[in-house]
């Protein structure tokens, strides 16, 4: 079955894809699995006990990617999906997930995904997740992603999440447990406007010797939107952890940043930083001296900040 233009637009926004992807993929549309494809090294299986899929990546798989976009283009759908990723020893892969909701109706559309990643020894994953909402219906677009990451020794994961437009309400939870010499890097980008609400919670437990994490969030809140950023790092061994929230506040928006670091080992080195402020007047002025209007200057500054 071919995708309609709205579905194609959502696919483009969340996965950068112009068509159904090549290679390993799973595409979920309006509450049902639309199609999936396994490759030689990557097997995708539909779960039998609950909605969702299991993704198995063979040990040693190099430079392959998996796309698992989710699209809701009908109003009124609510779903809860479980996706489990099993990444074999020494594999090096890119996983692109993402959820696009188009709501042109008056009923709420909601997608909640529970993603669990199991990284075997020395596995490397780049995980990209984008959230996007469109449609001018009055129905809310709601996304509540939960991500669990279990990292074995020497594994590495980079997680990039972005929610720039159109999602009315989000409650994102990310939890990770790291064994020795595992590293987790998280970059979150978030922009809310209108009356949107977004809450993100990161909880990273550095259990293994030499494990490390960077949790970096850049956020812009406009209009009457609200954001809450919670970031907890537990240092339970010799490890290094860093959490940073950098936020631009505009109009009547409200942002709370609540970093928390706790250490139970004398060689745990943990740092947290959080800064919230408006766009610096001198930045606007500089760009205006280049001939930009105040609005153009603001746009450039925000686009750069969230790039």
């Amino acid at each position: 079955m071919a995708l309609d233009p709205i579905q194609l637009e959502l696919l483009q926004q969340v996965a950068g894809l112009h068509e159904v992807p090549q290679g390993a993929y799973s595409l979920r549309i309006n509450g049902a699995l639309h199609g999936k494809n396994s490759s030689e090294n990557i097997t995708i299986e539909k779960k039998t006990d609950k909605p969702g899929i299991d993704i198995y990546i063979k040990a040693g798989t190099k430079k392959e990617s998996v796309h698992i976009p989710v699209i809701l283009s009908q109003a009124g759908i609510s779903e809860l999906v479980y996706n489990d990723f099993h990444i074999g020893e020494g594999a090096d892969v890119t996983i692109v997930a993402g959820c696009g909701i188009h709501n042109g109706g008056s009923e709420k559309s909601e997608h909640s995904g529970i993603h669990a990643f199991y990284l075997a020894k020395g596995a490397r994953v780049k995980y990209i997740e984008k959230h996007y909402g469109s449609g001018d219906g009055s129905g809310e677009r709601v996304m509540n992603p939960t991500t669990e990451v279990y990292m074995d020794e020497d594994s590495y994961m980079e997680m990039e999440t972005a929610q720039i437009k159109g999602v009315d309400s989000t409650d994102r939870v990310t939890k990770a447990e790291l064994a020795a010499h595992a590293t987790l890097v998280i970059h979150e980008k978030l922009m809310t406007h209108g009356k949107q609400f977004a809450k993100t919670t990161f909880e990273v437990s550095l259990n293994g010797k030499g494990s490390g994490t960077h949790v970096v969030s850049r956020a812009v809140a406009k209009d009457d939107s609200r954001q809450v950023f919670l970031s907890k790092i537990h240092g339970n061994n010799r490890c290094s952890g860093h959490t940073e929230c950098d936020a631009i506040l505009m109009d009547n928006a409200v942002i709370s940043a609540i970093p928390e670091i706790s250490a139970s080992h004398v060689d745990a080195a943990l740092i947290h930083e959080a800064a919230i402020g408006k766009i610096a007047g001198e930045q606007l002025m500089k760009l205006m001296t280049l001939g930009l209007t105040e609005q153009e200057a603001e746009e450039q500054i925000i686009n750069g900040f969230l790039k």
């Binding site: 001296t289 001939g291 750069g304």
Partner: peptide
Amino acid sequence: ITERARMGISFAFQQPVRFKGLTVKDLISL
């Protein structure tokens, strides 16, 4: 400021401004 810039006035600040995320190329392009 904008109107004057568009009339052909340029100004190199005594204390240049820093921008998170904008690159040298971005600024020169603007």
